[in-house]
């Protein structure tokens, strides 16, 4: 656990943790608003976003792709809302129509474009490339953390995801009360004069930003899993929104750490020689955590007293 850990595991693990937290935070509210699958939709439309960005700029570089992906997410959200309202179609179906169509367009564009010279393919988009985000310059082990030369060579993904994670945390804190009240009782929030439409849209845009930044580093599987699994598991642990948030962050971190360790070292333990996909394993671990809370979580079942009399 010395220099090798710092060189090869520290940064991917940190990136995994930060990405998981950035997705899990807005995921809490999406789940309570019964919009869990908006995260699914967003992560699918990231692909056409980066392809269009590539077509426009002709280079594979982070900023245009992030912008392209964020733009695609905004377009998707607007399209879903438009189809829902204009066609009077239920939200699930409207989402399904939108994200599959945009995804298909993305795949087609990708096939039509000559991307053989650059690293841009669907698999990368889905699975990410967490294992490759190593800190090669960190030759002195933990001492590299205070070595400016080594620090300068940190993978740029780490800085980006840290920034986005900080932004998501800040937005959650600042808009905490608005989010809470408009999620619980939108009619009351309207009557208070709160901009409930803007709050809902802002939440989805925040989720999109988190998804895009996380996607850049870890691929879209982690994104969907982290939007849903840690908050869902957290909901089964407590009846307080504040505590639910803390639980979801804890589960997100746990999934990222355990998933990364299992992917990298698990196969070695059972005698295999090659590591498996870290992104996939992180998603799997988050699912196992959710499964455990579904079976044993103290608040796993509905109480239903009020619900029955209310209907």
């Amino acid at each position: 656990m010395g220099s090798e850990f710092v060189q090869f595991s520290l940064t991917p693990m940190l990136i995994g943790i930060l990405a998981s937290i950035a997705c899990a935070l807005p995921g809490n509210f999406l789940i309570l608003r019964k919009q869990a699958l908006i995260g699914d939709a967003i992560s699918h439309v990231v692909l056409p976003g980066i392809v269009v960005a590539f077509l426009l700029t002709g280079v594979v570089s982070a900023l245009p792709m992030l912008l392209g992906a964020a733009g695609a997410a905004v377009v998707a959200v607007i399209l879903i809302e438009a189809i829902k309202r204009l066609g009077k179609i239920e939200p699930g179906a409207a989402m399904g129509v939108t994200f599959t169509t945009l995804f298909a367009a993305g795949v087609l564009l990708l096939e039509q474009t000559d991307t053989s010279s650059v690293h841009l393919d669907v698999e990368h988009a889905l699975m990410g490339n967490l294992e490759s985000l190593i800190w090669f310059q960190a030759r002195d082990g933990w001492a590299s953390l205070i070595d400016p030369v080594a620090l300068a060579a940190l993978p740029p993904e780490l800085g980006r995801i840290a920034l986005v994670c900080a932004l998501v945390v800040a937005l959650t804190l600042v808009f905490w009360r608005w989010l809470k009240i408009s999620t619980f009782d939108e009619g009351f929030a309207d009557a208070l004069g709160l901009p409930t439409g803007a709050i809902g849209f802002g939440l989805v845009i925040t989720a999109a930003i988190a998804a895009v930044a996380a996607f850049d580093a870890v691929g879209s599987i982690i994104v969907i899993a982290m939007f849903i699994c840690p908050p869902a598991a957290a909901r089964l642990m407590t009846n307080s929104l504040e505590r639910q948030i803390w639980w979801s962050v804890a589960f997100a971190v746990l999934s990222a750490v355990l998933g990364y360790v299992f992917a990298g070292y698990g196969p070695l333990w059972i005698g295999a020689q090659h590591a498996v996909s870290a992104a996939g394993m992180i998603a799997t671990v988050s699912g196992l955590i959710l499964g455990l809370t579904c079976l044993f979580g103290p608040h796993r079942s509905r109480i239903g007293v009020g619900k029955e009399t209310a209907t």
Binding site: W176, F184, N239
Partner: peptide
């Protein structure tokens, strides 16, 4: 404003005092 009771999801993770405090949100601000 007191909305219809059935208009909200009572499964929401909040306590009684949390809900009452929502009445003060306008005054407390963000």
């Amino acid at each position: 404003y007191v909305p219809q009771r059935a208009s909200v999801d009572w499964d929401f993770p909040a306590s009684v005092i949390d809900v009452v405090l929502m009445g003060l949100y306008r005054r407390i601000g963000l």
